[in-house]
Structure formats: C-alpha cells, structure tokens
Amino acid sequence: MDAMIAQVHAIVGDVDALVCAAGGFAPTGPLDETAVEDIERQLGINLKTAVLATRAALPMLRRTRGSIVYFGSAAVLPGATGGGMLAYAMAKSGVLALMRAVAEDERAHGVRANAVAPTSIRTAANVAAMGDRADYVSREEVAASVLWLCSDAARAVTGQVLRLG
C-alpha cells in the first residue's frame, strides 16, 4: 500500500481525498458455523485494506487537510441484525470504528473521516446474486454521496455515517 500511495503521489502530487471502497461480501452464517478462515478473509478484504490505505495516505492527507471516506454497510447500523453474515458484519463494524477513531485522532490535523453505509448497491454481481427486486441504491447515488463528503461543502463534517438506501 505504501508503494501504491508513493506511485500515486509521483504521478499526481498530493491528493486531498482517499476513498476506501475495497471490500466484499460473503454470507457466513452464525458464529458456530463460520470458519475462522472466512472471518479472516472478511476482516482482510474489508477492514485491513482500509487500515493500510489510511496509514499510507495520512501524511499526504495531513498536508492537504483532506478527506477520507470509508465504505461501511447498512447491515451494521443500529437496528440491523447482521444475521447470516457474521464475518462481514464484524468487518464492516470495524470499518466504522476505524472511521470514528481516525476522525477524532486526525481532527487536529484537519483531516476529515466519514463513511457511507449503503444497502445493496445495484451492480451486475449483486443483481445476479440477489435478483432484480432487492432494495438497491444506485452507483450514481453512492458516487454523489462520496463526492459530497470529499467536497468543501462538507468541510465541517467528520465522524459521520451516511446511510444510503
């Protein structure tokens, strides 16, 4: 991750936004039916990627007083159960905890950290897996929310989660 951020810096200079959108979903069932490997995989692709990207980009974001947007999930917000997706729910809860900690720790450096928490995003893979009638949020709606959180219009917003869908 450090090498990737260094390459980005070499090409475009300091950036003022980091969007941690890497991740993935897999149903894993309840705790006693969830393999440790599945927990490690979900934590790796959803949480560890966000941690490593944030660590690598922080020096640059401090210089630009930039913004970080994390991808959480509506499945881990208050009122959600996380049933049938223990490992995913653990990982996305961790992403939101990371966002809150970074928002507080980086406030003094002028770096903002927020998250979007979409329901299912309408993608070809999600439609194939869940059908066309699921409650989806469009990719355009997600992109508009991320752009707003990175913009000067949201300069006073940090430590917040936007539920989408």
Rank of each mutant, 00 (worst) to 15 (best):
Ala143Glu: 10
Leu18Gln: 08
Tyr70Arg: 03
Ala101Asn: 14
Val12Trp: 12
Asp38Pro: 00
Ser151Tyr: 07
Ala35Trp: 00
Lys48His: 10
Val69Asn: 05
Arg63Pro: 06
Phe71Glu: 02
Glu140Ile: 01
Gly29His: 08
Ala21Gln: 13
Thr81Val: 06
Ser138Trp: 08
His9Ala: 10
Met90Phe: 12
Leu86Gln: 09
Met130Ser: 09
Ile121Gln: 01
Arg62Gln: 14
Ser67Pro: 03
Ala97Phe: 01
Ser138Ile: 05
Ile39Gly: 04
Ile39Cys: 09
Ala56Asn: 02
Ala113Lys: 02
Arg107Phe: 12
Ala17Gln: 08
Pro27Asp: 15
Val8Trp: 09
Ile45Asp: 04
Thr119Met: 04
Met60Cys: 07
Leu58Trp: 03
Ala156Phe: 13
Ala26Glu: 12
Gln7Asn: 13
Ala22Trp: 06
Val15Ala: 09
Gln7Cys: 12
Asp105Cys: 02
Pro59Trp: 05
Ala103Met: 05
Val19Ser: 06
Pro59Thr: 03
Gln42Val: 01
Gly44Met: 06
Ala128Leu: 09
Glu104Gly: 14
Glu106Pro: 02
Gly131Asp: 11
Val111Leu: 10
Thr49Tyr: 05
Gly165Asn: 10
Pro78Asn: 05
Phe25Val: 04
Asn126Val: 00
Ser151Gly: 14
Leu147Ala: 15
Ala75Val: 01
Val137Leu: 04
Pro118Lys: 07
Ala91Gly: 08
Met4Cys: 10
Ala144Phe: 05
Met85Gly: 11
Cys20Leu: 07
Ala115Arg: 10
Asp105Tyr: 04
Ala87Thr: 06
Leu52Cys: 09
Ala108Thr: 10
Asp2Tyr: 06
Asp105Met: 09
Ala21Asp: 08
Pro30Gln: 07
Ala125Gly: 03
Asp105Arg: 15
Asp135Ala: 15
Pro59Gly: 14
Ala113Met: 08
Tyr70Ile: 07
Val76Ile: 15
Ala80Ile: 10
Arg133Cys: 02
Ala74Tyr: 05
Leu96Tyr: 07
Cys20Pro: 06
Gly165Arg: 01
Arg139Asn: 00
Ala129Ser: 15
Asp38Val: 04
Val111Ser: 05
Met90Ala: 15
